[in-house]
Design a protein around this nucleic acid. Structure first.
Lengths: 132, 132
DNA sequence: GCTTGACCTGGAGTGCGCTCCAGGCCCCAC
DNA sequence: GTGGGGCCTGGAGCGCACTCCAGGTCAAGC
């Protein structure tokens, strides 16, 4: 892995726009990114790694505000490791809940579909476990 | 089931606000709801049933615009049954995809957590299938 | 008759997460 | 030295899904 990356490279890698990248920085999700003498951003390997995590967390609907809190813990130093882990673990729990909720709703919708089609509602139910 | 319901009753039943209920009507998710002589809304049993479906679909992130299309099909008459089913089935497919995506991201986050804790990344991986 | 509570209308406002824009700078290739 | 591409800044704008508000009506209970 190279030691620095241009905005264009990073944007492409995570399928983000340059605007979004700058927006995340403005919002405090990343520390102030390094600059080339020209003023252009130079992302370090650890910026890129953090962005990977941010991408995962955003893709699973963590709000920007919580990501900012996480970033603040990161910048506060190593002694916040426990709190950071806590944020991530809570997120995983919420994700479990969210997935369960989606499945429950999916099952309910499937009932409507079956009913629509004329199946007597509880014969041949959609096998929920096999839909993942 | 009674033959009509007040706004308050319906709102409580689906945990929606009166504002949201009116908003859905304005947006064409429901047909124009019946009125009492006083001008107050009276929801029929089939309005309530449709709202149940709407709730499921919204809770699984179907956008208002697609719900409106669905409602338009409903109002266009029985011959749209096929199209309506199609909308619902496509939604189920998207939901399958979304759930898979959430799980993949969850697994990636778990890797970060494990790495954080010092587990050598692929010993004792989080048992994804048991998290549902 | 008066109050209270539930509801009505049209329209404005909010929060979130981007997204776009104008005007400008730097660097490389031709 | 000129053109183009990539990037810079501050700030405005957007789409979505609500959410709130002012001012009003109606029915029931005291």
């Amino acid at each position: 892995m190279r030691d620095h990356f241009t905005p264009g490279e990073v944007a492409e890698r995570f399928d983000l726009t340059l605007d979004t990248l700058r927006y995340y920085e403005r919002e405090g999700l990343l520390r102030r990114v390094d600059r080339a003498p020209s003023g252009h951003r130079r992302y370090r390997a650890d910026d890129v790694e953090l962005l990977g995590l941010i991408r995962c967390l955003r893709d699973t609907d963590m709000p920007i505000a919580r990501l900012r809190e996480f970033a603040e813990l990161l910048q506060a130093g190593d002694h916040t490791g426990h709190d950071r882990l806590d944020v991530l673990r809570r997120h995983q729990d919420r994700l479990d809940q969210r997935i369960a909720e989606l499945r429950a709703n999916q099952a309910a919708i499937q009932h409507k579909i079956d009913h629509y089609v004329g199946v007597p509602a509880d014969s041949a139910p959609r096998p929920v476990e096999e839909t993942s």
